[in-house]
Amino acid sequence: MYDVRLWLSKRGRLKFVSHLDMFRMMQRAVRRAEIPLWYTEGFNPHPYISFLLALSLGVEGEKEPVDLRIVGEMTPEEIKERLNAVFPEGLRAEAVTLPEHKPAEIAFADYFAVLEKSEITAQELRGALESGALETEKSGKSGGRKVVKTVNVSEHIKAFEITEDDTHIYLNVTLPAGSTFNLNPLQLLDAVSRYLGRPVSAESAVRKRLLRADLSEFR
């Protein structure tokens, strides 16, 4: 029995498939691929599959980690090939490795978003990101009740970089990720929309990789 870490890319239309649905899809994929997974021993046994960090609906992923517990001898390379043979289009196992870091070490994520110049200029975006006054609303739970909290976004932007061409603006941004606090680029753009007083949306947004607290790559 050993654990492997699968690095998934989730592209195109699959960005509209939710975290919960991804889990079910993965359960079926490992069955089709006939990967010998370890099953939990409870009343209702299920295979051990763990998505380390949820990816928001609408955001694509390039290297999303999923842990699988394997019984038997199958090698990481074979697991990768078998999964890629049965995945739907848009989902790919980019690599299968042995886990190096603990899931709790995930602290940040690098995102890349494409914006249309018809909606916002590079100066406006830079001004907003440097304003210190970005806010968005997040729904959460407090004492079992649903509450909507206003969150200051500016203090959470770890780093960003803006480039542009004739039609588009390209934003690379590092935002907090992990089990305690998450901010995704769609929420960031929501905060920018509130700041500017008009809607700004992303043509596409992708999570490039996960980082540890010291900004080294999570592996």
């Binding site: 195109g12 239309r13 509209f16 498939v17 649905d21 609906l57 609408g58 739907p88 949306s201 043509e203």
Partner: peptide, 19 residues
């Protein structure tokens, strides 16, 4: 369509491409 789907509930109903 890609730009509009984030506006609706359960967008995966409308994307096709299922296994």
């Amino acid at each position: 369509l890609e730009k509009l789907l984030p506006l609706v509930q359960k967008p995966a109903r409308y994307i096709g491409g299922e296994l």
